[in-house]
Design a protein around this nucleic acid. Structure first.
Ligand SMILES: [Mn+2]
Ligand SMILES: [Mn+2]
Ligand SMILES: [Zn+2]
Ligand SMILES: [Zn+2]
Lengths: 137, 137
DNA sequence: TAACAAATGCACTTCCATTGCACTTACTAT
DNA sequence: ATAGTAAGTGCAATGGAAGTGCATTTGTTA
């Protein structure tokens, strides 16, 4: 059995053609994708199916959602050993103002953020905007 | 002449009744507000006017926009000496998961964030989510 | 193979953001 | 003060993304 199948099975997700394709699509991309991106890649499939597939992946911690400030939610595969289930997104995200792409900087963890007395920090969203490596050279 | 009038004038914004009212409304609030919040406060005014007023304020760096992850953009007055025009929002924002309110933590500047080689950081959006001081006691 | 549960597709809805255009108000120059 | 012009306001409509109800299809299990 393929590794993707194994992964889905281990998360109690039924293996369907659509899910395998979407998973592969996400795995090939190094950048975070929008629902529209997936839609464009699978024109034969219905938007709802893609939407619900992503939602299923999200619930099962296969992908995590990224709010990069563009107003359109993006998604990216979780890394091995990612614990999105416990705390949301310890790594930071980079959004390129030039090519409009967003990437996970999984190596770059979010530093401890101090909040005033009385405030309790539960999780943190950190998005750096600027020029990505592809656009800067 | 009142201070608000002076401020608007200094920013080359025409003084209108609506703008003064909206400015005062924002000044009274300690929390970031949505367009709907303003709408509810000024039921006689048209939504478009409120929308464009806020946009004008934003362009002239009187308010700054806040994306707290709720999907609804919020706005708050810029502090004196705020340089939103140069870089966006050096301070962090706190969103309460309990009361759903978002506040500017203007005293809490965003720490320097390291990005990988080739990436150029232009600005940073940092939102901390958790329980606010009002809700935690 | 029958029975059941989950996945998919279609249509529709909601919510917020944004725009075009007509009308009104405020400023400026005579 | 008045006319002319530019900016502000209100109404109506649009668009995009997210989400839902329900019928149909597909997959799993007995
Ligand atoms: Mn990520
Ligand atoms: Mn702020
Ligand atoms: Zn780029
Ligand atoms: Zn609170």
């Amino acid at each position: 059995m393929q590794t993707i199948e194994k992964l889905l099975e281990s998360k109690d997700i039924r293996i369907t053609a659509m899910r395998l394709l979407i998973y592969k699509f996400l795995a090939e991309k190094e950048i975070a994708v929008t629902l529209s991106d997936i839609e464009n890649a699978f024109e034969k499939a219905d938007r709802t199916t893609l939407y619900r597939t992503i939602k299923t992946f999200e619930e099962k911690d296969i992908v995590h959602q990224i709010d990069d400030g563009t107003g359109i939610t993006k998604y990216a595969l979780c890394e091995k050993g990612c614990n999105c289930d416990i705390e949301t997104d310890l790594h930071l995200h980079f959004h390129c103002n030039n090519c409009n792409e967003t990437v996970c900087l999984t190596e770059h963890k979010i530093p401890q953020i101090k909040v005033p007395n009385g405030f309790i920090s539960e999780n943190v969203n950190l998005v750096v905007k600027g020029i990505c490596d592809k656009c800067s050279r």
